[in-house]
Design a binder for these strands. Structure first.
Lengths: 69, 69
DNA sequence: GAAAAATGTAAAATACTTTTTACATTACAG
DNA sequence: CTGTAATGTAAAAAGTATTTTACATTTTTC
């Protein structure tokens, strides 16, 4: 799942560690998510979006594998 | 984390099982999430939003415990 | 009201996320 | 160029989500 964390984080002049503290997780968690190692929990996704002043839908860019409607 | 799954699901006249199939998870997973037993993964949240024709931010209503900006 | 469909629930097993600790590399300021 | 801050990475342990199987209860339909 692609994301726009790095750009938004840098726009706010936050280090990974500062963002981690604001989201109450470790720096390694932010680093892993920013680098697409795994997806955050939904709660953390919301927390990151909140701190970065955006929405989950804008912060994470998911290409659906489900072709339905 | 509160959600609006049930209303949107019923608006589309889907059973939990049908929604589960469309999202490629089990009925129990949908049931548990709909009843707030636990939060879905971010991927499933996006899949559910897609199938229910909405966004993650509208489908899940998260009250931030983070007072920051 | 009986049958069928839908929903609720539970326990064990599996998979994934996060923490912790620790070290290595890269970027940046003086 | 040297020191410091920032970032990348790894392994083990703990926490959380999901599946599977199975059964119970509620709701709907006829």
């Amino acid at each position: 799942m692609n994301n726009t964390i790095r750009q938004l984080r840098k726009a706010k002049k936050l280090s990974q560690e500062e963002l981690a503290n604001l989201c109450q997780v470790t720096r390694q968690t932010i680093n892993a998510i920013e680098n697409n190692k795994y997806d955050p929990t939904l709660k953390l996704a919301f927390d990151m979006a909140f701190v970065l002043d955006t929405t989950v839908d804008k912060l994470f860019l998911y290409e659906n594998t489900i072709y339905e409607k």
